[in-house]
């Protein structure tokens, strides 16, 4: 597929003989929303960890546009424009949401090398940080330690952090997991808003969300690609229905 911004070829990850990701080819079109679905244990999170450099592939390659991402460190991948959220919320419990986002905004600036300056110099990102927090609906909770936030708010902060990096490709690992209906709707709206000018890859179990957002869907099972195509096609694929969609519909 031409116009792919993110492309994995023959990607594999082996954990002590167990192949969690087993020869995955993935091409994500520039500007698209690409959903990754599949039962628990299918290897979706492992695939994200490979794409973002948190795991080194046992085989295969990853390209972002003209860059070769294979074997790069996570911070390098982030700098090149691939930001991620974590399935298991991953924050700094003692920092406030505003401090989180300020830190994310400061990361490309070099300001954070200045050990002789006051940490208040990070305040220069406060306005933009509040904007982003407002966008994800966290403005009212900007000043309390992240460890004390409600679950839904922690998820929102995950999203704000990824957005703060203004990435070319945004990888979201189950952004709506465990959310109530209202929060799910807000997240869908938000993804719709922020997809402009970028590419989104999301792991998502909620088929309503997939149907309303995704341009294409890749179905993963046991570390392999079971099917790939537009949602309208995928949902009728008998293999997919028996492997996954059938019981996902039953769940949701």
């Amino acid at each position: 597929m031409d116009g792919a911004v993110l492309r994995a070829q023959g990607l594999a990850k082996e954990f002590r003989g167990f192949r969690a990701v087993d020869g995955v080819d993935l091409a994500v079109a520039e500007g698209s929303v690409h959903a990754l679905v599949g039962p628990n244990g299918a290897g979706k999170t492992t695939l994200f960890n490979l794409l973002t450099g948190f795991l080194k592939p046992s085989a295969g390659s990853i390209r972002l546009g003209e860059h070769d991402l294979t074997g790069r460190r996570p911070e390098h991948v982030a700098r090149l424009g691939v930001a991620r959220s974590f399935q298991i919320t991953s924050l700094f419990p003692q920092m406030t949401p505003r401090e989180h986002v300020e830190l994310a905004l400061a990361s490309p600036t070099g300001l954070t090398w200045r050990f002789w300056r006051s940490h208040r110099t990070l305040d220069r990102h406060a306005a933009r940080a509040m904007e982003l927090l407002d966008q994800v609906g966290l403005a009212a909770h900007a000043a309390i330690p992240a460890g004390t936030l409600a679950y839904g708010h922690k998820r929102a902060l995950e999203l704000a952090l990824a957005l703060a990096l203004d990435p070319r490709v945004l990888l979201l690992d189950e952004p709506t997991a465990g959310m109530g209906v209202e929060d799910v709707e807000r997240t869908v709206e938000l993804v719709r808003k922020v997809r402009a000018g970028r590419t989104v890859v999301m792991v998502e179990h909620n088929m309503t969300v997939v149907a309303s957002l995704a341009d294409r869907v890749t179905v993963l099972q046991s570390g392999r690609v079971l099917a790939e195509g537009p949602y309208a096609e995928i949902r009728h694929d008998p293999r997919v229905i028996s492997a996954y969609l059938g019981d996902a519909d039953a769940v949701h």
């Binding site: 973002t52 948190f54 460190r73 996570p74 911070e75 982030a78 700098r79 930001a83 991620r84 974590f86 991953s90 924050l91 700094f92 419990p93 003692q94 920092m95 830190l103 994310a104 990361s107 490309p108 952090l161 990096l165």
Partner: peptide
């Protein structure tokens, strides 16, 4: 506090 998160932020 969270090395992985710091890396993910670049």
């Amino acid at each position: 506090d969270n090395t992985a998160r710091a890396q993910a932020l670049g």
